[in-house]
């Protein structure tokens, strides 16, 4: 057998166990953060925690921390592409009202929703705490 396959060293189990625990703690934090009403800050906080969780998974479970740079370039490159995607899309529709008289209309699509008062029915959880 070729001995040249040994360039990657084996990561100790403890590293993966700690990563696992960190992810569970961050998951609990995500839920707790959403139960507190921070107004406009709830969304950036939830996304921030999700980004940290993603980084933890990518660095340790996916091994980017020990991997060759090309893997990180490909992964981060996809992230940059999403940023451009978001930027151009928002730049487009944020200013559409300025030129279109149809702003706010439903463009002739008949809604299938049987309208009721907000809060009159709950298919999931009965209280969300933060949003009422």
């Amino acid at each position: 057998m070729s001995e040249q396959n040994h360039s990657h060293h084996v990561i100790p189990v403890a590293v993966y166990a700690k990563t696992f625990i960190a992810l569970l703690v961050l998951t609990a934090l995500t839920v707790l953060a959403s139960r507190v009403d921070l107004g406009i800050l709830n969304t950036p906080l939830a996304l921030g925690i999700a980004l940290v969780k993603m980084s933890v998974v990518a660095l340790f479970f996916m091994g980017l921390k020990w991997d060759k740079g090309i893997s990180t370039i490909l992964f981060v490159g996809a992230g940059v592409a999403i940023f451009i995607f978001m930027l151009l899309t928002f730049a487009d529709f944020s200013f559409r009202g300025d030129i279109s008289a149809e702003e706010g209309s439903t463009f002739g699509i008949k809604s299938p929703v049987k309208l009721v008062e907000p809060g009159a029915l709950h298919h999931g959880e009965t209280s969300k705490g933060s949003h009422h």
């Binding site: 299938p112 929703v113 049987k114 309208l115 008062e117 907000p118 009159a120 029915l121």
Partner: peptide, 13 residues
């Protein structure tokens, strides 16, 4: 368009 539930917003689908 297959949405047939009751809801508070017509944009729910």
């Amino acid at each position: 368009k297959f949405f047939v539930a009751e809801g508070a917003f017509e944009t729910l689908p």
